[in-house]
Amino acid sequence: MKVRKVTLFDVVSGIVLALLALVLLVPFWQMIVVAFSTTEGYVKSTYHLIPTSFSVDVFSQLFSSSEIMKGMLISLINVLCGWLGGLILCAMGAYALTKKNIIGRKFIFNFIIFTMFFNGGIIPLYIWLKKIYITDTIFCLFLPTLISTFYLLLLKNSFISIPAEMEEAALIDGYNEMQILFKIIIPVSKPVIAAVSLFLIVQYWNDYYNAMMFMNKPDLYPLGLILRNVIISKQALLRTPVAAGAVLPSEQYNMALTMIAMLPILVLYPFVQKYFVAGVMIGAVKE
């Protein structure tokens, strides 16, 4: 492509984008600064932009807390089940829907789409999950949201663009559709699979909603809910007589906990990043 002149638009746009990025960096930076300050440093600093003190106390507090460690374990299990289970089921549904000769295809398609926009409400869902004995088990953390219709559609659109010859060759060789899905389709669709995987992993790692609604046993709380509780309970503790000496989690503790909660995602992110833009593109554009 020919090199264009730098226009006023380019300059203005560049400035706007840079400003935006700067603004977005501020909360992120503040989080880091606060997590590593001492109490004195925190209280003395007004804007929390320039680090004036340094301490890793809250981090050692966090890592020695069995509750936090347990929460991480639960979150890990939740992520594995939600990601693998979700991916497999979405892929199966997506692939099945690409087969044009299935009876009732349109009906099934509508059946699935409808659930994206209408649901029974959270109370009926709770009651139902209770009836089938899922509440208070680890299953309630991922089963209710296992299949995302949106990702299913994304995968379907991407599978459609795979050349039919590949499948036909495999069929001739005697493979059935399930084997084709796992041996051919999925490996070929790396970008979109990576994209959906990232979305799923992020979703289940951060999730607290399912636990908050359906999980009453504190020893099965995922990290997301523990984080939420730490922050919320601080608000609750403030309006009760805390009694001399009882310790409120400090602001630094909250920030450190947040950082730890975000860490796995941020670590994963650079590896997956190159895939998912391409993945989303393939999935979304071909309609």
Binding site: L89, G93, A96, K99, I102, I112, M178
Partner: peptide, 13 residues
């Protein structure tokens, strides 16, 4: 096999 996959998914729905 396609119907099987569909069935599993539909059961979830």
């Amino acid at each position: 096999y396609v119907y099987l996959m569909l069935a599993i998914v539909l059961v979830w729905y």
